[in-house]
Simulated scan of single mutants.
Amino acid sequence: MSTIPWLGPSDPFPNPQTQSDPDPEVPGLLAVSERIFAGQLERAYRSGIFPWYSVRQPVLWWSPDPRMTLNPADLKISHSLNKSIKQFLDDPQMQLRVDHDFNGLMRACATTERAGQDGTWITHEIIDAYTALHEQGYAHCISIVSHSQTIGGLYCVCLGKMVFGESMFSRVKDSSKLALAALCAWCYDHGVTLIDCQQETDHLRSLGAKPITRTAFLEHLHHAVAQKDPWAWDFDKIVLQKYLV
């Protein structure tokens, strides 16, 4: 059994396309580091690797097989969500904001209680690292706002024409799903054909996400990140009209 490597600030990540998992008992775990270093997070995403760990753990770097993904065209719009979209579009007090208070939205994702979960993987270090990516233009957020209060949303990473979904939160029914539907509509309109959802869950499956092999994911990633970035992240709730046709 190989030892899982500890990475320093400039150490390269293992290549998940050519190297097997270091420890078969922990499938998908490729490397560990003491902290997230500057520039390391972007390099990880370009390699199909992401951090996921808990407080008091070292930084754990993953590339799972299979990989949960969502084709924006496959998003399932339930009758309930369709009704929520109509109400959202018709209510002038409800708005969709893009890249507004990124740090605050991440903190909302970290602090919103979720059924069956104790604590969060979104540590202060994670918030700082993704906020730095946001300042570089690689990370984005979508907020659902009602009467000037943020009631739900999500954040993600975008490199070329590859979008990596990270986390979302909801304080009002369907608010995070409205953000996801807006993201999918924008991706569909701009030639983004795959959103990385990372881990397999029943919730993601109910929204239309499907697992694909790590090899297939990495092949798609290689071509997608090499393409020109989509248009500017500048849209509003009108993008959701796509689902009313």
Rank of each mutant, 00 (worst) to 15 (best):
V59L: 05
D189Y: 01
F88C: 06
G116L: 05
G208D: 02
K86A: 15
L178K: 06
F13T: 09
F88Y: 10
K177E: 04
K173M: 02
H147D: 12
S176K: 07
L180G: 00
E200D: 10
L30D: 02
Y53F: 15
L159G: 03
K242S: 02
D91R: 06
A44M: 08
S80K: 12
I77G: 09
H134Y: 13
S170Q: 11
P211A: 07
V157M: 10
H190T: 10
S206F: 01
A224L: 11
V145I: 12
K76N: 10
H134W: 11
Q40P: 02
F50M: 08
A232Y: 08
H140R: 12
G191P: 01
E125F: 02
I212G: 02
A31L: 06
P24M: 11
Q149G: 00
S148N: 15
N15L: 04
E125P: 03
I151G: 01
S176A: 15
P92T: 03
P66H: 00
L240G: 09
E34C: 06
F217I: 08
V55A: 12
Q40N: 06
Q136R: 15
L180P: 09
D21N: 15
L194H: 06
Y45C: 12
A179I: 11
H147C: 02
Q199H: 00
P9Y: 09
I212S: 07
F164V: 00
S170L: 05
S170A: 11
L204Q: 00
L29I: 04
D90R: 15
Q241V: 04
Q17P: 02
M1A: 09
S170C: 13
